[in-house]
Write a protein that binds this DNA or RNA. Structure first.
Lengths: 228, 228
DNA sequence: CATTCTCCTTGACCTAAGTCAAGGAACGCG
DNA sequence: CGCGTTCCTTGACTTAGGTCAAGGAGAATG
């Protein structure tokens, strides 16, 4: 059931600084949709007739192999746009999107949104920045997958979370270990084993989704020269 | 030695369809630079004070691990823009760029170029399309690295080249085998071995940089369900 | 509170692909 | 045209990490 969105657009970074006139136009464009845990937002190959912004909840974008293994490309939280690639490249969605928890998204239909950008270069500049940042993130993901072994990827990710959460010594996972494995290009078993080994070496302690970073030096070293 | 560029901008896809006024402005912005084989265009971490367009030659963009292994992110040919990510995200270059053969590039300084876009939404739309397409390519690269084994990656790449070169049954590598290995996230030894195996099974025949695709069916299958 | 999920962990095993080392082929240079 | 350098190929070996299988812990449900 599509609903009219609440007036939260102003708090979305992408629309930040937009005039209230444009915000009104956007508000009229947007269609609000709700999803329950596990539900797909779109599938790889679906026509890219618009993009989404997360209002609340969490969405994973991922690829699946023929044997059913899954690789998460990115996890999106509130305020982040999903699927703009399909809109601007004029192609079908290149990956799947599914929600990890009950979520609310806003949908912006392609054509109307494109018309809006054409009129407002500042919106275009914002989008360029968003896409560029995502590109940079892919750069890191490829580096991690190809040049680092699993322990290094885990260490990197923990340090990244510490940075993001603004706490040098303790991080909270926002996704399950299984999903984390899929994000890091490995499987739960391997993640589990390495996590144990890291704990045994005094690098971290794990308790549920709470992880204490005991040895930042060591983690830093591990994240670069992958040897555990 | 920077030189004024020749009037080839109109033939660059990114600037295609731009008015001659804007083309003149761009021409005045651009600085032509020449590189000899192996030379770096920029290094990871360098300030992103502008971006480049390939006029002739070939440029690889790549990451390097602490142990010296290299992963190529993309190979750019004539007409393609390099390094826009740094410009629009306002960050240093997130990877290295080096030329694979004697090359000529045009450099566009950041600030002037940004001013130009702000005035011309159609240029912004073109850039959005370019970045989106690159994003989609990364999507494929991550999928290949994480969800496919090396034989599958090779098969995919050969089929991709066949598509690109418009010849179903014969492709020509434009880079050395060693560089190809680095692009596919493996090493020359492994590439070599698998190529031999594929030849033994009648999928392909290899002679230098010329590869004949004998069994498209088989390659297609291999590219999906990676079993050789 | 017991039951059933779902998720996580550990063990034994196996295999894809990386390392090290040695020849060969091809290419550019003097 | 011969020489050296760079690139490619093949072989023997090692290993990171995936697979399969079996518990165990925690959360959710009736």
């Amino acid at each position: 059931m599509p609903l009219k969105p609440p007036v939260i657009l102003a708090s979305v970074p992408l629309f930040n600084g937009l005039g209230s006139h444009h915000l009104d136009l956007l508000t009229n464009l947007a269609i609000q949709k709700s999803y329950k845990k596990g539900e797909f937002v779109f599938s790889e190959g679906d026509p890219g007739d618009g993009f989404y912004i997360v209002v609340e909840g969490q969405v994973k974008v991922f690829k699946t192999s023929s044997e059913g293994k899954e690789q998460i490309l990115h996890i999106f939280g509130p305020g982040e746009p999903i699927g703009e690639v399909a809109v601007f490249a004029g192609i079908p969605f290149p990956a799947n999107a599914a929600v990890l928890a009950k979520s609310v998204l806003l949908f912006f239909p392609r054509d109307a949104f494109i018309r809006l950008i054409a009129k407002d270069p500042s919106l275009a500049m914002k989008l360029l920045a968003v896409l560029s940042t995502r590109l940079k993130q892919f750069t890191v993901q490829v580096e991690n997958l190809s040049l680092k072994e699993v322990p290094g990827r885990i260490a990197s990710h923990l340090l990244f979370l510490a940075e993001e959460q603004g706490n040098r010594h303790r991080v909270t996972l926002t996704i399950s270990k299984g999903q984390l494995a899929s994000l890091l290009g490995t499987i739960p078993e391997t993640l589990s084993r390495i996590q144990s080994k890291m704990a045994a070496q005094g690098l971290i302690t794990v308790s549920g989704r709470e992880i204490a970073l005991l040895d930042l030096e060591g983690l830093e070293r591990l994240s670069e020269t992958g040897k555990l």
